[in-house]
């Protein structure tokens, strides 16, 4: 008699406690994962901004030695302004890819100016830019991993029910569409 009463009490308790604990735990976990995505994104944005900040300096240095390469320089400046106007991860990624292409062109042109190539200031700027590119790569990897963790979490059962309830949505990856990735042919003739 006594034994069955305890059993009923335990069942009731577990029926209430387990679902609510699961709910709270899952919700908090989702909030944490989302925060993680946001902070990783802040890193990406920081580094992209840094890259954009370095460009005017680079353009000015190159101008001093190779002012006739206007077209290439304008390309770099235009790509930079696109980067500054971007708002979503995808836009950022696309603008960033354009900056990369423009800088590759610039580096190609620079080969013709040995004086510029051995300029101390230019070498340091190139190091800073390379470092920033690498930081973007790291920040991007971290961000995409965070997004992957978050997105797969909110799609899995039973988390997806809770995610739906509280309006958690898929996050956008920092990546370029495959068709945009094709680098335009560089022709200097």
């Amino acid at each position: 008699m006594k034994k069955s009463l305890i059993a009923i009490a335990v069942v009731l308790l577990l029926l209430i406690v387990i679902p609510s604990v699961t709910l709270i735990g899952t919700y908090n976990n989702l909030v944490q994962l989302e925060e993680n995505v946001n902070s990783k994104w802040a890193q990406v944005e920081n580094q992209l901004k840094r890259r954009a900040d370095l460009i005017p300096n680079l353009v000015n240095t190159v101008k001093g030695f190779a002012n006739q390469e206007k077209e290439v320089l304008i390309g770099v400046t235009e790509a930079r302004s696109k980067l500054q106007k971007a708002t979503t991860p995808k836009e950022y990624a696309e603008a960033n890819a354009q900056v990369t292409t423009a800088l590759e062109r610039l580096n190609f042109v620079v080969e013709r100016y040995p004086e510029l190539k051995s300029n101390e200031n230019f070498i340091r700027l190139q190091d800073e830019l390379a470092g920033t590119e690498n930081r973007i790569a790291v920040a991007r990897r971290d961000y995409n991993e965070a997004v992957k963790g978050f997105n797969s979490k909110i799609r899995k059962f039973p988390t997806n029910i809770i995610a739906n309830m509280f309006g958690f949505e898929n996050k956008e990856y920092f990546e370029v569409d495959q068709k945009d990735k094709e680098v335009p042919e560089v022709n200097f003739e």
Partner: peptide
Amino acid sequence: GSSGGGGAS
């Protein structure tokens, strides 16, 4: 400690 890709190679 951690790093975020700073440095030179």
